[in-house]
Amino acid sequence: MKRNPYRSQKIAFALLLLATLLIIVPVGLIVVIIVQKGLPAINWQFLSDIPRQGMRAGGIFPAIVGTLYLVFGAILFALPIGLLAAIYLSEYSKENFMSRIIKLAIVNLAGVPSVVYGLFGLALFVVFFKFGASILSGSLTLGIMILPIIITTSREALESVPQSFREVSLSLGASKWQTIRHIVLPNAIPGVLTGTILGLGRAAGETAPILFTVAAFYLPQLPKSIFDQAMALPYHLYVISTQVPNVDEKVRYGTALVLLAMVLFMNLIAIIIRYKFRRKKKW
């Protein structure tokens, strides 16, 4: 058979399109199914009440609050450390054995399974530092888990600032730190924020790291301090889906919908920030 370059191009194009469409289908299905089954459960009581009747009725307010605490606790810890580490890695460290080890460690940190983070958090924060099963332990564990995301995206953001800006700033007699502070950082902030919010979304959705470190099976009250246990949406979803018999399907899907909405909302914010700054970008 003689090869027809025009036809092989068409086949390649069709395959690429097919693969791309295959990505959209599961996303669409997940959203449709969860919205369809969960939406009937959503009302004011569901969002603002404590769980009642052995979590078969009432609301999921403590779990929403718990997840918010955990997510912002994680970011409070991971953003400063991650950003400073990224600045060091991209602006100061020289290419040598040490910096290669650090970069390798970050890549590996991103590859650690989340349940291992849970066990690690249990050993270090809950037991060794005696924080107990608490918001503090959970936030720190989640923080370490999202650290690689924040470092990697921040480094990319810093390195995408053109080298010529640094040269101009230095050539005007500004110091290296002034250059970073006034030229590099302001132009990297959108990328850093995007990474941070992606990290937030990841932290909000994970079950395993909070399983051993913070999550309460059933706690019909709000946490009073960072040393309290708390409920959290992913774990609550797990509990009502597998551990409690006879939970109405719409309560489960309602919980899933709230969690999904929170994560998608954060991603949406990330996209908006990126879009706004890209339009403002001046080079």
């Binding site: 010529s164 800006f165 101009v168 050539s171 030229i183 302001p186 080079w283």
Partner: peptide, 10 residues
């Protein structure tokens, strides 16, 4: 120093 390309800072 003035560089080869016009390089205004953003």
């Amino acid at each position: 120093m003035v560089f080869a390309l016009p390089l205004p800072l953003p």
